[in-house]
Structures are given as structure tokens and as C-alpha cells.
Design a protein around this nucleic acid. Structure first.
Lengths: 351, 351
DNA sequence: CTGAAAGCGCTTACAG
DNA sequence: CTGAAAGCGCTTACAG
């Protein structure tokens, strides 16, 4: 039913070798022959199958994107960037979803690992973009060293300490921007709700870096760091709610605070709900900044000031780093840190 | 680098034919031989490449999902369902994103068509799930008649009149539920903001069916249909805002209304913002129901009562209908209408 | 019970 | 300038 190169060859009265030459713009084909073949291809809408093109070269012209779920905009945006960049290449995208939450339980890690092994051992892809926490990081680093094309997009900072290509967000400077903004508005006592600083026994760099940015912004402004103004959440809305509650309860006996930096938007929203219930107005009584720029931010009232990450661009770059590996076998591990952008909305105002 | 069936055969001292027999659980293999091969496969983590398995059968064991973008939760949810259902099959998922908005301009349609032709002519997929408006519907119907496995998921009702397999939402009954709910709360004057009833020259069934459900709910309750209570939007938040404004302006000289059925959530949200600005409280002065159940609904205040569509399940069924076509060559076009669920939140209350 | 050979749709030396 | 042949990794008749 579908046309093959042999069908084209038959119609043109030549061998498939010649057709292949024409398709691939190789020299040494008679102009007449070339034109005739081109005309037939045009008429029949023949498009060579990239998978078959790969066959002889022991590749598939397929790349995989493996992620843990499509909840929330981060991974969806990454997928959009990846897909968009890939559409102008010869590669097609295989989508794999392990469908596990993060943080991940040992059983879920186990399942994910099996999924990963299977993807790789199947040999259906020439390379893989991972946006997927794994426990077996050493295995991946080895795989990469052995020449399997691999790029990580890192939403939780879980691969950044390994010698593999990683695309990540400059969480430190993003937090710095956010807290500088608050300080610039005249706030002196600024609380922070951090993300989980550790999962299992390994540090969550995302959370750690955002905390570090917070601390350094205070320091450069000559403001003291006060551990009473720090609460650790887990990136969920509920934890934002309970953390701000704890901070406020503590603050009643301390000197209070007038601004909050939440390490992600969901926690900022949870905190704003709690503030609202306590009769504290945002931004009049409390300025709030989040991190992520999820679509929700623009809809809630007041709209949330936050830090935007160029996730789509990160996806695109990941594709480029992957293709480079596939085609040039360049194995220099690269870390790329993407800059963030402060989005000022209505949840912050001068003290 | 990657293991092949020949590597396994070599290690086991047999031919690849025998290994193939073992992998595929064919009879007539000596128990000893079988066990030995199984052991080697186990040790080496060999997994046959599904693409190569397909090769000899002129298939690829790949199915495609072609959609117009990943904005908003509908198509993301569909993708999740598709991916999840596929993971327990031998098929892998190729993701294609035409990256056009809907409604679509002629140029975008043109681009989409070219994309579609290319996907199909390339021959990389055994079948395709479309969540993608196209202008060339006849071409697709023919393609399907000729035996190319195709399933449509229909978010705008654009393919429902063609003789192809379509999975869609029971928009009529969803609207019926929504308006019955309002009537049950004692509302007698209920306004509606419809979706676009026509795009280009073809009816948008989604909008038409929701309007029909609204009308019939009124009729069965013995309430009159009043065209002064109908405004046509385009599913955008802005159109919700402007439609409710128009309705209210009109209503000042008419007999008013106490409830609103917006044909999607975004328009409901736009309307709620307008009501708020006019000093009308939801749900005290006006009950509002939407349609879609986007994640936003639970975050806005008041949380929005709406109609939920089982999109993920629709994706799963689409996969089953596709695989059935691929494997059984069954060509009975099926239309499946998925039931909706009314989600009652805080935006509606008794009159 | 087992294997050699052909074939799926391409490309790539190689020969002419 | 052009084509026959081998090969990529599987499966499927067919032969033994």
C-alpha cells in the first residue's frame, strides 16, 4: 500500500541505488535521470521512512523523552520545546511516561529503572532526554560514558552533581532576584518557605540553591539571617499553608515579618490562602513572591509575583545537545544553567 | 554495542530462528534449549527491538498521536491516557505537535495538512490518533476507508459527522446536567454563554450540543427559552467577560437572570471577573456553572461548579480502538460518546 | 526439534 | 553515470 523506494525506482526505470542518490543529493547522477526521479517523487508524494533510513546505519532516527508525569506545566513545557525543535530535524519523538510522582518511593524507583532499562535495551531510540528522577545515577553516568547519547533536564537538581550533560535552571540567581525585589521594596524581615532540602539521603539542589540565593540577597543588603524566618515545605500547596501558619505563630513572639519568599508557586498559593484566612491582606500586610510562573499565577487574586524559568528553551537546547552527541559522538559533558526572569505582578508592594 | 538476537543465538550455540521461537513462546523447542536461552536472555537483559520485530511484517509497532498543541489540560490529559494505555502494549508512542491554535487560519490548516501527509507517507506509524482539526476531512475519511488505522478524539466536534472512529464527549447531556442542577436550585431565569456555533462554514458541534442541552433542560422544566439570555462567545476568557457584560446590559431592561451556564470554564472565569467588577457576588447574586473542569477551577474563589469530561479515559479508549484496527483490520467505524460528571463546588447555590 | 534462506526498505561500498 | 549485492535485526515459511 505505502510506496517504497523500489516503487519509485520501478516507475523511473532505474535501480533503487540511483533513487537513493537523488534523494540524498549525491553527485554523479545524470541530470535527466535526476529530474525524472524528482518528478515522480513529487507526483507520488513519496517520503522515505526515517526508520528504514536508519536501519542500515544501525540507528532509528528516533529520540526518546522520558519523564515522570505530565502534571503541572514544567514537563509539558519541556515536551513542547523538545517537540518543536525536533520537528525541524530528521528525528521523530518517542514519548515515555513513567507515571510516578516525585518524590518517589523505592518501589516507584524500581519500576522507573526497569522502564529505563527496557527503553535502552530495546534499542528503539538513538538517544534519550531524561526529565525523570532515578536512583541508579551511576548506571546512567556509565551509560553516558560508554557513548549512549543522553541529556538530562533537571527540575529538582538531582543529576547536577554527575558528569553528564544537564540543562538546568539558575535557581540561585532566581532566588537572588526575587529576594532583592522584596528588599528593594523596603522589606527588611523576609521569611522563606524552602522546598525539601533533602530527599532520601541526597540533597535537593533546587531547594538548596534557592535557599542560598535568599541568604545571599540578605547578606548583600546587610540584613541578618534569622532561622526563625525559615520553614521547610515540600513544594505542595498544603505545605505552603502549614509553613506560613507555623511562621506566623512563631513570629508573634518574635519581631514579625512583612514579606515572604516561597520556593515555588504552589506553596506561595497555599500560604496566601492561609494569610487570607487569618485576615492578613496580600500585598498590603504581606508581600509574597513565588517561583516557577505556573499559569495559575495570573488568575489568582492578587496575581502572583514570581520567577519564570525558560523551560521551553531548555527543552530545545536539550534536543540540540542530544543530536550533537548522536551525530558527532562528542562526549564532553556540558552543564547549561538557564537564567530566570522576575515577573512582577500584584502580590508585592512597597512596605 | 547493543545486543541483538544473533548475539544471544551465538552465546546459546543455536540459530536465531530458535531464539526467536523461544522469545515468542512458540512450541517445538527442546526444554533444555529453551531454558538455556531464557537464562541467557535473563542474564544479558536482552530485549528485542519492537521496530525490528515489525520490519518483517511491514509494520513498525509505533503509533502516532498528532495534536495541535499542548496548551490547556484537554490534550495533555488525552496524551496521558494514551501513553498509559500504550505502555502495557507492544506499541510505542510517536508524538507529533502541529503547534497551531484553534480556530485555525487557512495557512495553519495548510501547514497541518502537510504535516499529516508527511507523517502518513513516511510510514513510521502503524496508526494514528488525531486530536487535531483538519480542513481536508474527506481525505482522512478515504484514508480510513482504505485501511489506514485512524482514531479521532474530538474536542470541538469537528469530525463527528464523518464515517470514521471518533471518541467524543456527550456535550448534550453534560449541558443538560449542568442546567438541571441550576433549575434544581430554584433558578428560573438562566443565561447561557455559548461557544462559537460555527467556524468557517461548518458547525461546531461541541457548542451546538451544549446549547441544545441547555434548551432541553429548560423545556423539560417547563421554563421558556429566551433568546435575550443567550450570548455567543468563542471559548476565551475575554469573550466570557464581554458576553456577561452584554447580557447584564440587556437584562436591565428585561426581567434579569440569577444564574449563568458558561459553555466552558475559561468563559465562566471571565464572566465571574466581570460580575465581581460590577459588584455582583457569586454565588449570592448569581450562580455560575462552567464546562471542562480545568485545574484552575478548584483554585479560584469561589471554586467553580463545572462539568467534568473523562479525557484520560477517552485517550485510553482511542488506543484500544486503534490497536483493534491495526491487529484485526476491523473497519467498522465507531462513535463513542463519553458521559460527563457534574462537579459541584462553591459557585452555585439555591436561589 | 532445529537451521538456512528470504524478505521487510533503506544505504553503502564495490564493480563496471 | 549506474546497478548488483550485502547488511541492518527481526520473523516466517520451508526443508530436514
Amino acid at each position: 500500500m505505502r510506496l517504497t523506494i523500489n516503487d519509485i525506482a520501478k516507475r523511473a526505470g532505474v535501480s533503487s541505488t540511483t533513487v537513493s542518490r537523488v534523494i540524498n543529493n549525491k553527485p554523479d547522477v545524470d541530470t535527466k535521470t535526476r529530474e525524472n526521479i524528482l518528478k515522480i517523487i513529487e507526483e507520488t508524494n513519496y517520503v522515505p521512512n526515517p526508520i528504514m533510513i536508519g536501519l542500515g546505519k544501525s540507528k532509528t532516527n528516533l529520540v526518546g523523552f522520558f519523564t515522570y508525569n505530565l502534571v503541572g506545566p514544567f514537563r509539558v513545557e519541556a515536551l513542547r520545546g523538545i517537540s518543536e525543535r525536533l520537528s525541524s530535524s530528521q528525528y521523530q519523538l518517542l514519548f515515555y511516561n513513567s507515571n510516578v510522582p516525585f518524590p518517589t518511593t523505592p518501589e516507584q524507583y524500581e519500576r522507573t529503572s526497569r522502564g529505563l532499562f527496557e527503553i535502552i535495551n530495546k534499542g528503539s531510540v538513538d538517544g534519550l532526554i531524561m526529565l525523570q528522577p532515578v536512583n541508579d545515577k551511576t548506571y546512567l553516568a556509565e551509560l553516558y560514558q560508554q557513548g549512549f547519547p543522553l541529556v538530562f533536564i533537571d527540575d529538582w537538581g538531582y543529576m547536577s552533581q554527575f558528569d553528564v550533560p544537564v540543562v538546568e535552571v539558575d535557581n540561585y540567581n532566581g532566588a537572588l532576584q526575587a529576594v532583592r525585589h522584596l528588599i528593594g521594596l523596603g522589606h527588611q524581615r523576609i521569611a522563606i518557605i524552602t522546598g525539601p532540602l533533602e530527599v532520601g539521603s541526597s540533597a535537593v539542589r533546587t531547594s538548596v540553591d534557592r535557599l542560598a540565593g535568599y541568604k545571599d540577597a540578605l547578606k548583600e543588603a546587610g540584613l541578618p539571617f534569622d532561622s526563625a524566618l525559615v520553614a521547610q515545605g515540600d513544594f505542595s500547596e498544603e505545605s505552603g499553608y502549614s509553613c506560613i501558619t507555623a511562621l506566623l505563630d512563631r513570629a508573634e513572639t518574635a519581631s514579625g515579618f512583612t514579606a515572604l519568599f516561597a520556593s515555588n508557586d504552589l506553596m506561595a498559593i497555599g500560604a496566601m490562602n492561609a494569610l487570607n484566612e487569618r485576615g492578613l491582606k496580600v500585598p498590603d500586610d504581606m508581600s509574597v513572591v513565588g517561583f516557577d510562573d505556573i499559569p495559575l499565577d495570573a488568575y489568582i487574586r492578587p496575581a502572583l509575583t514570581t520567577v519564570r524559568m525558560p523551560v521551553k528553551e531548555m527543552g530545545k537546547l536539550a534536543v540540540e545537545m542530544l543530536i550533537e552527541q548522536i551525530e558527532c559522538k562528542t562526549l564532553t559533558a556540558k552543564k547549561v544553567l538557564f537564567p530566570t526572569e522576575l515577573i512582577i505582578r500584584a502580590s508585592t508592594k512597597p512596605r
